[in-house]
């Protein structure tokens, strides 16, 4: 076991980690930040996406000890300072971009990473960027609409609807 310290959502946080402890387990069990979900645990579904030093990564496929000293943002860090929903979160609510909500933390983290890199993505770019995030409820259309809305663009009826 080793003590691992990261800056999580703007605060310095520490917890113990074994060699094998994954970032997602360190966040959920070490810090009790259970907003980040474990879906497939094989880096396919994207429910565990968080930002590490600004970039989205799958927290189920990174070791906590490797990230000692890193800056991490989780879904708990996405709300505004007054506790109201952040832009991407609000858009997911407005456009019904979720049903069961299990994939939503990863979707929001991936979508906000996309908008940082590409503030006005096309619908095709949104769909391509989210290819590592799986949703089994919505059929993706409302998620794509939410991301388009969060980028300040007009939300058109999407293809195949």
């Amino acid at each position: 076991m080793a003590k691992v310290t990261m800056n999580v959502n703007g605060k310095s946080r520490s917890a113990e980690a074994e060699g094998r402890t994954l970032l997602v387990d360190w966040l959920r069990e070490g810090l009790r930040l259970t907003g980040t979900h474990v879906g497939c645990d094989t880096s396919q579904c994207g429910a565990c996406v968080v930002h590490v030093n600004g970039d989205p990564v799958k927290a189920c496929s990174v070791l906590a000890q490797e990230l000692d000293g890193a800056e991490v943002t989780t879904i708990e860090g996405m709300a505004n300072a007054d506790g109201s929903l952040g832009t991407v979160q609000q858009a997911f609510q407005d456009y019904h971009g979720l049903q069961c909500g299990f994939c939503t933390p990863g979707m929001v983290m991936a979508a906000s990473a996309l908008l940082k890199e590409n503030p006005q993505p096309s619908e095709a770019e949104v769909r391509h960027y989210l290819e590592g995030n799986i949703c089994r409820c919505t059929g993706y259309h409302n998620i794509v609409k939410a991301v388009m809305a969060a980028s300040g663009q007009q939300v058109e009826p999407v293809a195949a609807e």
Binding site: G46, V49, D55, V57, S61, A110, A113, G132
Partner: peptide
């Protein structure tokens, strides 16, 4: 390769 999150690692 993979998806954006995988490509970051």
């Amino acid at each position: 390769i993979g998806d954006p999150a995988v490509r970051n690692r």
